[in-house]
């Protein structure tokens, strides 16, 4: 989090410097600036590296800071391309968006928890505090610890949107920042339930972290089920531009949506965009 703030300060000072030195300087044709979702940023860095290799003389600069920052920076012209890990909102429809991959949000429990599946209604009841003991959903006797995400994060927005909940209706016991903090919290508390990116959770579970992804509506939460579109709680990872992309931005977006980067997308536990 501190890193984000530092980034922010750096960006402000850099912008101030640019204003004083070259008032008219825009991101040059040979440099591409991407800002936004911390979910997409690691993938964008990899995409950028390969893009630079294929196009000598081009530099791709990636900075994370959340989907909202991606929208703001594209609007203000600070970035050529924004990274937004959700569908655009109604008041953002003036921007152009291009899906490059899909990401699923999965419910995670401690691996010692015997509960195998929860219905949508049960999840809503747990998150609104109507169900507070695991016994009520077929588990062992024990209090449920509800782990929620802090305001503004796209995982939270996707979760609320899917379950048609408002943030004020959720009775959380712990509020976390990023996926890793959530995974650590659930791994350290046998009674906890939380939600994080499926890619991150599958990776951690595969590496021996004591967490388990819960299947939803009979569909197992896995990279595979997100890929074939059967997993309900999924989100698109988008690149956005202010106007119809031209030049280098257009080339990068087309490159990011092509088959030749599928291996990079998969390496980040995301699901490639299939046309």
């Amino acid at each position: 989090m501190k890193k984000h703030i530092v980034h922010h300060l750096l960006r402000i000072s850099a912008a101030a410097l640019m204003l004083t030195v070259t008032p008219l300087s825009q991101a040059s044709d040979q440099k591409l600036v991407l800002t936004g979702s911390s979910t997409i940023a690691p993938l964008a860095v990899e995409l950028g590296k390969r893009f630079e290799k294929l196009n000598p003389g081009v530099r791709v600069d990636v900075q994370s800071g959340g989907s909202s920052r991606g929208v703001n920076d594209v609007r203000s012209g600070l970035a050529d391309i924004g990274m937004v890990s959700r569908a655009l909102k109604d008041d953002e429809k003036d921007l152009k968006s291009f899906t490059i991959a899909l990401d699923g949000v999965g419910i995670i429990l401690h691996s010692g928890n015997p509960v195998k599946t929860l219905t949508d209604q049960q999840i809503i009841d747990i998150y609104t505090g109507k169900i507070s003991n695991w016994r009520e959903v077929g588990g062992k006797d024990g209090r449920i610890t509800v782990v929620n995400k802090a305001g503004g994060r796209s995982t939270l927005e996707l979760f609320l949107h899917y379950f048609k909940l408002k943030d004020s209706e959720i009775k959380a016991h712990v509020v976390i920042g990023d996926n890793q903090q959530g995974i650590k919290m659930v791994a350290g508390n046998p009674g906890a339930v939380g939600y994080v990116s499926i890619g991150a959770a599958e990776f951690e579970a595969g590496n021996g972290t004591p967490i388990r992804l819960l299947s939803m509506a009979g569909v197992a939460a896995s990279v595979e089920s997100v890929r074939n579109g059967s997993f309900p709680l999924a989100r698109p990872l988008n690149l956005i531009t202010k106007t119809e992309p031209v030049g280098l931005a257009k080339k990068f977006i087309e490159f990011s949506r092509s088959k030749e980067v599928n291996d990079l997308v998969q390496a980040q536990y995301f699901v490639p965009f299939v046309r």
Binding site: M1, H4, H8, S68, A150, G151, G152, V174, V175, G177
Partner: peptide, 26 residues
């Protein structure tokens, strides 16, 4: 980090500084 007025020592709470750090980037 749950936003609530603490009524017992075991209540989870969020401080003003944590609030800024959690949400500023977003």
């Amino acid at each position: 980090n749950v936003v609530q007025t603490p009524t017992s020592l075991f209540d989870p709470v969020r401080t003003l500084t944590a609030n800024i750090a959690l949400e500023m980037a977003y």
